[in-house]
Design a protein around this nucleic acid. Structure first.
Lengths: 166, 166
DNA sequence: CGGCATCCTGTATGATACTG
DNA sequence: CAGTATCATACAGGATGCCG
């Protein structure tokens, strides 16, 4: 892995302010957030589904759903069952849907390195082949960690590329 | 998304015991763990590098490094600089390296949906093309959330596929 | 059913000081 | 440099009960 630009840690300066990973963690760094998100991908839409399937308390479920709605990952949609009062259900926004690779990359990793008794398998619904989460460049090449260069324009300029591993 | 087998939430039973995502979260659900991991990918190997770059206290850094070594994501390697006493550095194991897609999927997501002032870009070192983390089946098809079927053999049997969204 | 309020415990993390 | 020890704070999350 090579680092260039603002990401080069000159003087061991913290990179946080410019780091997208930290921004993602602001929303997803808690266990309950990831579990609620998992259930959204698995098809849950109602409060009780989230709480029961993710095995969280009502209070935690309510707090996490609120956070995920506030940050634009879930959206509430009103619905009304016959004879019932008006309620709302929780659905993934496009931004929420875009978290699929992140969530399933974790699933894939644990499947490989710390598999549960009955590892969940991901399959392409149309062709039946296994699905994997992988890094790939626009030219179509599979990419390993060592093949990646990280660059960022920034106030420190681009004139001082540093490759910590090289 | 379709669910089959043990992952079908019959009776809204918690799926946790069989879920790889939870197992991954056991190691990575804290902010500091992800930040230490990020620095490992960015080339940090020594205690002070981790602490300074991730902007964590010494105590947190020490605890997280210990956890990540214990869970097989980092390994310690002895080294000795001339005139210095023997120390050790922290390097990614193969299992740790395998977390690259998970970490960069988060980076990619925040780059798209909550970009920092200077978003870090991932580039294929060999061909110069942008790198993305994506779901793809073995036949080579790009796969969206709706194209994925999740299956798991389990004690509940495979005789009751449920597709919550269909 | 779909939440919210309150209390309580455990943990994540920072600040500071200390050790080898 | 590479940590450990101690204290203090904030938050995650469970248990319980309330409310429309």
């Amino acid at each position: 892995m090579n680092l260039e630009g603002a990401l080069a840690h000159r003087d061991n300066r913290p990179v946080g302010a410019y780091c997208s990973i930290e921004r993602a963690l602001d929303v997803l760094s808690t266990r309950s957030a990831m579990l609620v998100l998992r259930e959204a991908f698995y098809g849950a839409t109602r409060f009780e589904e989230f709480a029961a399937r993710a095995d969280l308390t009502d209070a935690t479920t309510a707090a996490r759903l609120r956070d995920l709605v506030r940050t634009g990952i879930l959206d509430t949609r009103p619905y009304q069952e016959p004879g019932q009062r008006r309620r709302h259900e929780y659905v993934l926004t496009p931004a929420g849907n875009d978290l699929m690779p992140a969530l399933f990359a974790l699933l894939q990793w644990a499947n490989r390195h710390d598999p549960p008794p009955y590892p969940p398998q991901l399959t392409h619904h149309h062709c039946g082949q296994p699905v994997s989460i992988e890094a790939r460049c626009e030219a179509g090449h599979p990419v390993t960690t060592d093949d990646i260069t990280v660059t960022a324009a920034g106030p420190f300029g681009l004139d001082d590329p540093i490759a910590p591993d090289g």
